[in-house]
Nucleic acid binder design. Structure first.
Length: 426
RNA sequence: GGAGAGGUGGCAGAGUGGUUGAAUGCGGCAGACUCGAAAUCUGUUUUAGGGCAACCUAACGGGGGUUCGAAUCCCCCCCUCUCCGCCA
């Protein structure tokens, strides 16, 4: 959520930054804000008067000893008159507040100053590449879904029977590989100082609103209608919301968390795309990194977070590149985002395998996540950051394709993973 | 699922209609005493909105209601705890 004060005080700056993202207009919210403040002034004056009368009545009853005295009745009358006026103003103001809140919740974060300006993914900026020497030279590699099915470790047909299309079942050593990847990723990040968490996988509406999935993207999430609970679309949501409505001590920061969770997404509006394989499923596994940090450190923490995600790809010797998203391609809550894209031979290009974002105070404001510095008055909002470290299914796809042997039947297991699987080949 | 108890400030814990934004204790902070510390004493210590400001307003799980006036009374919802049932 954007700061209404910031919008009020620097409307042109905010509008210009929103224009870098797309079509957004702050005038409606500004207008409502003016009306609301006017009403608030009137209302609080009336309430002050009403409080005064209440006090007087109490005093008079004590002094006169007669609750029915005419003097007191007169005050009651006056109090009732004010109540009538208030009963008119209060709903109006409340309605305005609700509208303002709704508008604010639907505005995306402002891109950071350093975010490249652009319209869509074509304007994203490649930052660096790593491991080009690991790109397979053999042009006749099987796509991972064909290889996986022939190896008997991926099964899409039976998954559709159990659930639907866009689900996978991992069998045998495929399941073991997925588990090994999760363990490997977590071990690495725990060693780097992240505290491992296993959060709830069902998430309430308030939590999804805080991190920005709601209200705009309800159609992307699976909902359990009877319970105000949604299947988590990413561990970012539960991890950040662990601290919702808290005032932390400055010494508590930074907080580093990593978590493995399954992730559930409806993938509405992507019907034609990536219909085969592990790239786009309704359910996938992911290890997520989340940081809550002091605002002055969030930029450097963001860089470090990206490196922590990159470390996994490097350890697995998978070729990748780092791309900075342009303003038009930024996610709703992000001020600045780096995507990691792994080389996928079946696509003949780099494909997203991690997205690392600095949300600055956007989620913290929605979720009321603040901290207090000893000796300083007031509270400040933390900055939240998140990144995949990594999407496990896509990592499996990248391994199956990039580590495929020329016989078209076997896959070498990355050296870093071999201790976890106790074998060299699939 | 059934029965009961309860949700108050950083924590503990008073408060059942009228200077209670909230006693008291602990913790925190500042000061005094001390060479320094402990102990002791004194003061201080919630958050948010509005206003140039003085200041005003709101909040005792959430939402409604009664009343001149609600932490206190009434209704609905949520959560926690205990016992029973069920279950991994």
């Amino acid at each position: 959520m954007l700061d209404i004060k910031q919008i009020r005080e620097n409307p042109q700056v905010v509008q210009e930054l929103l224009n870098r993202r797309g079509n957004y207009d702050i005038q409606p919210v500004l207008q409502l804000d003016r009306e609301q403040r006017k009403l608030e002034g009137m209302r609080s004056q009336l309430q002050a008067k009403s409080n005064e009368i209440g006090r007087l009545v109490g005093q008079k009853i004590k002094a006169l000893g007669n609750p029915q005295a005419p003097e007191i009745e007169a005050l009651r009358q006056e109090g009732n008159a004010i109540k009538v006026q208030l009963s008119e103003l209060e709903p109006q103001e409340k309605d305005l507040r609700t509208q303002i809140e709704a508008l604010l919740l639907s505005l995306p974060n402002l891109p950071s100053d350093s975010t490249p300006v652009g319209r869509n993914e074509d304007d994203n900026v490649e930052v660096r590449r790593w491991g080009e020497e690991y790109i397979p030279s053999n042009p006749n590699l099987l796509p991972h879904w064909e290889l996986g099915e022939s190896l008997g470790i991926l099964n899409f047909e039976r998954s559709a029977k159990v659930a639907q299309s866009r689900f996978v079942t991992l069998m045998g050593v495929g399941a073991a590989l997925e588990r090994a990847l999760i363990q490997f990723m977590l071990d690495r990040q725990v060693a780097a100082g992240y505290v491992e968490v296993i959060p709830p996988f069902l998430i309430n509406t308030q939590s999804l609103t805080a991190t920005g999935q709601l209200p705009k993207f309800a159609e992307e999430s699976f909902k359990c209608d009877q319970d105000d609970l949604w299947l988590t679309p990413t561990a970012e949501v539960p991890l950040v919301n662990l601290y919702r409505d808290e005032i932390l001590a400055a010494e508590d920061l930074p907080i580093y968390h990593c978590a493995y969770t399954p992730c559930f997404r409806r993938e509405a509006g992507s019907y034609g795309r990536d219909t085969r394989g592990l790239i786009r499923l309704h359910q996938f596994n992911k290890v997520e990194l989340v940081k809550l940090v002091h605002p002055t450190t969030s930029e450097s923490e963001h860089q470090k977070l990206v490196q922590d995600a990159e470390a996994i790809l490097q350890a697995l010797q998978l070729p990748y590149r780092v791309v900075e998203l342009c303003s038009g391609d930024l996610g709703f809550s992000a001020a600045k985002t780096y995507d990691l894209e792994v080389w996928l031979p079946s696509s003949g290009k780099y494909r997203e395998i991690s997205s690392c974002s600095n949300c600055q105070d956007f989620q913290a404001r929605r979720g009321g996540i603040r901290f207090k510095e000893a000796g300083k008055k007031g509270t400040q909002l933390v900055h939240t950051l998140n990144g995949s470290g990594l999407a496990v299914g896509r990592t499996m796809a990248a391994i199956l394709e990039n580590y495929q042997q020329s016989d078209g039947k076997t896959v070498r297991i990355p050296a870093a993973l071999q201790p976890y699987l106790q074998r060299e080949f699939l």
